[in-house]
Design a protein around this nucleic acid. Structure first.
Lengths: 337, 337
DNA sequence: CGAGCGACGTTATACGTAACACGTCATTGA
DNA sequence: TCAATGACGTGTTACGTATAACGTCGCTCG
């Protein structure tokens, strides 16, 4: 609230224009056809302009009982991925007269705070990434229409889910590596308890166990380049035969793997093939450029918003996972170069 | 608004607890010491819990006349930098009972929309990056307390400003390169009309023009790795003597420069030294790791929030730019290796 | 000629909350 | 004994908006 003089209200505008507050509301709300004369309407608009009137949103929201605003809950913004998700969601929202408030689950702000108290915005619905689910302790049951992103369709409390087809992405990666001749694969896995990461591990394991003569090991690490370096370095220098391919849960881990390979004197892709997942800008900055799975972040956001709109209108959101695409670049080659 | 049964109000809680609505407000607002008995208070809390009551924020905001919510306007989230700014701002805000709503200036959502209409949140103040200033066409004058980030202290309409000491960062980069013996420098500049980029160009120019025998050229490019590649490739293969050092406006441009150097067969740092600015995760993923200027994004956000809190309380925000730090890594060396 | 209607507004109300200004009863102090 | 005090609440109001319900006036039509 601005200090000093208080903000003008619709009543001030009414007084300035010599009409009632109701008339102001009608004119500015564009509902005056056949109720107010054109000249009066113009007089109201003029007064509003001169006073620089802005409707009080708190009052409007209270009166209307809705806000046409949804909350997008995401993990801490350490990559551009969820920026893309926001862009997609906001675009669709704008087309339907909605606004999107972005709530990055705040790392290190102490105990997970209630995003609803924190955002202080009155909301019509929520889209939440399962990776930020710990921030959602306060969503209980059916308080608010909810769409989950990348969440287990079962066990999501009946909330609608929109998922990337990560399983298919892992399938494509695995097939690509197998067709190159790799048989011994190391999985550099994120140590986050989230469905989307469980899918990677499960799909990789089932795919490889179906093919005799293959070997799969796993190394866990927090999602940061530095942590990934040490995890990859340790795993790659473990006794026994060295893996010829490294499947990383995301591109940042792959970047860490590159550094680990350099330290160990391993050439990519001659000595070690590496794959990522996300297709961040980072992937093309690496040398050699990273073979990875492209996720369409904006489409993800669009689909999430469409699903939420469907829920809000009482429709059933359309199902179907979002397809992903393997992008083969220079980091993968047959074992031994 | 949830469909079907409507949400419980404080009056519902009052009825369930057998007290008046006022008592509910007192108890839940923690203002009941000496006004309501402990047993009654507990009865109210119990009823609220059973009904899963949540106060209507629109109503509260209307009544209170403020929201304890501020808006953080930033450019599209294409790097993790503004994620860090948000984290810092949200941390300080939380300590003072405020919430932060993040508004990334939506690239490609059509005409620049009014963030205030879009966010639909009633706000107490705004922190805005000058890089997203085009989204702010609707901030006119003193409507809302405003703090600008990385904006020209003059010409900011009297708004408080919080700046990183970019000029000093450029100074450190320049001194570093000069002391290594570089005399011919190419500036890979972002083609964004924003004060923070003007500072880079100006400081570099004045620094070099003060030293005879130096040569400075400039190539402009949009901030994306792909665009930077072509811009750098063109500039580096231009006729005449080749620059020995490349100063990039940010780390993403530097990543593009790396690719351009590879295409041209130039080794970094032997044939070409490269510097960036930001110290994104990307900087350490490059090979060789990038010499760059570290910006403390979280501190930036903290200082921005502190400044806004000062404005809100009628105090004068403390001045002083935020120090930055040159991080020397493997991408810079004396010319010729 | 009077009922009906369209054009042009106004009056009144409710949304849910916070808090001011009172009440009521029992206990206390002089 | 009687006013004063404290403990424990309640009645009422206002925040600024959107809209349902209600006038009023002049004209038309049967």
């Amino acid at each position: 609230m601005a200090r000093g003089s208080t903000r003008p209200t619709s009543r001030d505008v009414a007084q300035a224009a010599g009409v009632s507050q109701a008339a102001v509301s009608l004119v500015l709300g564009d509902k005056w056809r056949g109720r107010v004369s054109e000249t009066t309407a113009e007089r109201v608009r003029q007064a509003a302009r001169e006073l620089d009137y802005r409707p009080n949103l708190a009052a409007r929201n209270l009166r209307l009982g809705h806000t046409r605003t949804v909350l997008l809950v995401v993990p801490a913004l350490t990559t551009e991925f969820f920026g893309g998700v926001y862009t997609g969601a906001a675009r669709v929202a704008a087309q339907h007269g909605f606004g999107v408030v972005l709530y990055p689950s705040p790392a290190g702000i102490g105990p997970a705070r209630d995003p609803f108290a924190s955002a202080q915005a009155a909301l019509d619905g929520v889209i939440a990434s399962s990776m930020a689910a710990d921030a959602l302790t306060d969503i209980r049951g059916d308080q608010l229409p909810l769409v989950m992103l990348d969440s287990n369709p079962e066990g999501s409390l009946g909330a609608a889910t929109v998922n990337l087809d990560i399983a298919d992405g892992v399938r494509q990666v695995t097939d690509h590596l197998l067709s190159l001749g790799h048989r011994h694969i190391l999985h550099l896995a994120a140590d986050i308890a989230s469905w989307t990461f469980e899918v990677r591990a499960r799909e990789l394991a089932t795919r490889l166990s179906a093919l005799p003569g293959t070997l799969l090991r796993t190394a866990h690490t927090p999602i940061s380049i530095e942590d990934a370096v040490t995890a990859a370095e340790t795993a790659l220098s473990a006794p026994g035969p060295r893996p010829t391919a490294l499947v990383c849960d995301d591109d940042k881990l792959a970047a860490g793997a590159y550094k680990a390979a350099r330290r160990l004197g391993l050439r990519i892709p001659e000595d070690l093939s590496v794959t990522g997942l996300d297709d961040l800008a980072l992937a093309q900055a690496l040398d050699p450029e990273l073979t990875t799975v492209r996720l369409d972040a904006e489409l993800f956001g669009e689909r999430g918003m469409h699903a939420l709109l469907a829920v809000l209108e009482g429709r059933t959101p359309e199902g179907g996972d979002i397809p992903v695409e393997l992008v083969v670049r220079g980091s993968t080659a047959p074992p031994g170069g």
